[in-house]
Amino acid sequence: MTAFRTDLITGGAIAVIGAVYYIATFSIQETANIVTPRTFPAIVGIGLIVLGLFLAGQAVVRHRKDTLSEAAPGSAGSAHSTAAGDGDGAAASAGESSVETADRSSGQEGVGGIVLEAPPEPQVRKVVFQFALFFVYLAILIPVGFLLATAAFLMGLTSIYAPEKWIRNLIFSVLFAVVVYTAFVYGLAVYLPVGILG
């Protein structure tokens, strides 16, 4: 995804979230206080809408400027330097100079454009799968119990990653679950769910 599309989608999503949040404030009961319980949530909802629209709008404007400068070869360089100079964040300027690297690296960019290598981007399908596994683990933790659920979860994750090392994976999964369980329950008195083993 290009920086343009990322910002457009992010901005749009934030504006929608802001709108939902703002609408939810209507169900807060009104009171006679100077600052009612509604005041802050309403400000936050509106703030999110405005910021989301601003981000999306900014992306569109930048995109237009970019396409214009590409159309006129030779001026691309100067367009880049003005973008870096207009002061609104290294993310934007880096996004224009090297779209591939800046795609998800804005968290690691510095004041004035210290740009680090962007970490590699995993496939969406795999991310969804990892999250799905994680949610299954969360769902079974209490009914099944910490020891079994954790050992199974760890075994699953490590086996997807390195199936040929299954002996190591098994030892690690069981050992980690047991050691952590013992440490928390007996050492720190944090009682973890026993589930079907109880």
């Binding site: 992010t10 910021l51 989301g52 981000l55 900014q58 964040g89 290294a90 804005s106």
Partner: peptide, 15 residues
């Protein structure tokens, strides 16, 4: 990085 995005982050925290 982007100031607009940092502000969005703050508003998400507030929300």
């Amino acid at each position: 990085g982007s100031r607009a995005k940092a502000l969005i982050s703050i508003f998400i925290g507030l929300a």
